[in-house]
Each structure stands twice: as C-alpha cells, then as structure tokens.
Simulated assay, not measured.
Amino acid sequence: MYSSYKAQSLAMKNLKTLLISANVGSLFDDPENLFKKWLNQFYQVVRDKDPDFIALHCQEVGGKKLCPVNAEREKVDSALGSLYFVHSRVVDIRIWDFASSDFVNVKDTKVYDGSIESVGEKDKQKFPLELFPNRTWSRKGYMRTRWQVGRLSFDLVNVHLFHDDSNLESMSR
C-alpha cells in the first residue's frame, strides 16, 4: 500500500500543470483584431510548456457589454468560462460531480455550451446582491471544479471579481 501511495504522489508531483486566468472581455468586443493574436499567444505558451493539465479560467466571456434582457436578469451567467485540457498521457484523473457527490473518470471530450445549470461537474455561485448596493443585478461570482489525480484532490476556482480600483476595498463595504 505504501509503494502504491508513493507512486501516486510521485505521479502528481510530475504532473505538469499550466494555470491561466484571463479577462477576455476585450476579445469579444473586437474579435477580428484581437482573438487570433490572443489564441496564438496561448498556443505558444502551451507549446513551450508542454503541460499535462491546463486550466484556462476566463472572465467577461461574451464581452464587457453583455447585458441582460427584460426579466431574464437573474438568469445571466457570471460571464465565466472554464476550460480544462488533459493530455492523453494522464491516465489517473477524475473530476468531482457535485450533483452525485462522487468523483467520475475523465475519459472523453465534453463541451458544455449555453446554460450549464444542470452540469454536475461544477459549483457555480453568484455573489449576493447586497454586495452591489448601486445595482439591481450582477454577473459577479465564481465557478469551482474539484479534481483528483491519484489520491490527491484539489479545487480550482474561477472568480469574476468586482470592478473597482481595489477589490479588497469593494469587499469591505
């Protein structure tokens, strides 16, 4: 048992991980000029680092000018996009299903587009409206995923922060 745990710990130590967080609102506001440049930079980093696991957390997906329509304000997403890439050489990786409270094997490509309310592999929360006294709605919040490689599990959180000169100052209000 010890040697199995030791081997799994070594596997996690050797897992080359690339964590990227990016506010991509400007890309959606001017995709013809910015998207290809941004994507080329992303590809270059991936080629240079050759990671086993990539977590790409994006904020302002859909652009900074994305507005709710009519009474659908509560349904507007927190403008977060979380993309995870696992190299085929990684064989022992699982993701937590918050709906079933269990880890599930990562084996096939999954793409969730549109509403992700029924997707069990994420915990998504909006920050309470009382944090935004001057607005009737907000897209601010977070999306969390939980991963397991061997016996080690870890959470990744994509946060859509408050827009202010100081996020810490905004939170203290």
Score class of each variant (00 low, 15 high):
Leu80Thr: 05
Phe132Trp: 07
Val69Arg: 15
Leu152Ala: 07
Leu15Val: 01
Leu27Trp: 06
Glu72Ile: 00
Lys6Thr: 09
Thr109Pro: 05
Leu161Tyr: 12
Lys75Cys: 06
Leu18Trp: 00
Ile95Arg: 14
Ala99His: 11
Ser3Val: 05
Phe103Asn: 02
Asp164Gln: 06
Arg173Ser: 01
Met143Pro: 04
Val119Lys: 06
Val46Met: 10
Pro51Asn: 14
Leu18Phe: 03
Glu60Phe: 04
Asp97Gln: 12
Asn70Thr: 01
Asp108Ser: 10
Gln148Asn: 06
Val104Thr: 14
Ser170Glu: 15
Trp137Gly: 03
Asp50Trp: 02
Lys122Val: 14
Val104Tyr: 04
His87Ile: 04
Ser118Gln: 11
Lys140Glu: 11
Ser166Asn: 11
Tyr84Val: 08
Arg173Glu: 11
Asp30Tyr: 10
Val106Lys: 02
Gly25Phe: 12
Lys49Val: 13
Val24Phe: 04
Leu34Gly: 00
Val90Met: 01
Arg144Cys: 05
Asn134Asp: 09
Asp123Val: 00
Leu10Gln: 15
Glu121Arg: 02
Lys13Glu: 04
Leu131Tyr: 02
Glu169Pro: 04
Arg94Ala: 13
Leu168Glu: 13
Gln148Pro: 03
His163Val: 14
Ser115Val: 03
His160Gln: 13
Ile54Trp: 03
Gln125Arg: 15
Asp77Asn: 14
Val159Gln: 04
Ser153Gly: 04
Leu66Ile: 08
Leu66Val: 03
Asp155Arg: 08
Phe127Ser: 02
Glu121Trp: 05
Lys65Tyr: 13
Asp102Cys: 14
Ser9Leu: 03
Phe132Ser: 00
Leu19Val: 04
Asn158Met: 02
Lys110Cys: 06
Asp77Pro: 10
Glu74Gln: 10
Asp108Cys: 07
His160Glu: 12
Ile54Phe: 06
Gln59Cys: 06
Asn105Leu: 08
Lys64Cys: 05
Tyr84Lys: 01
Val159Lys: 08
Leu161Asp: 11
Val149Thr: 00
Ser115Ala: 07
Met1Glu: 07
Val104Asn: 05
Ser115Glu: 13
Glu32Cys: 07
Asn70His: 01
Gly150Phe: 00
Val104Glu: 05
Asn167Phe: 10
Asp108Thr: 15
Glu72Thr: 08
Ser3Asn: 08
Ser138Lys: 14
Leu10Asn: 10
Tyr112Val: 15
Thr109Phe: 05
Ile54Lys: 01
Trp96Asn: 00
Val46Asp: 01
Glu169Ala: 10
Ser118Asp: 10
Leu161Cys: 09
Arg146Asn: 15
Phe85Ala: 02
Lys126Arg: 12
Tyr5Pro: 03
Lys13Gly: 09
Val106Asp: 03
Thr145Gly: 01
Ser101Phe: 01
Pro51Asp: 00
Thr145Gln: 01
Val91Arg: 14
Leu131Thr: 05
Ala7Phe: 05
Phe103Tyr: 03
Ala22Asp: 11
Glu60Lys: 13
Ala11Glu: 06
Ile20Val: 14
Gly120Ser: 09
Val46Cys: 10
Val90Glu: 00
Asn40Ser: 13
Gly63Glu: 09
Gln8Lys: 12
Phe85Val: 12
Lys6Ala: 15
His57Val: 08
Asp102Thr: 14
Cys67Glu: 13
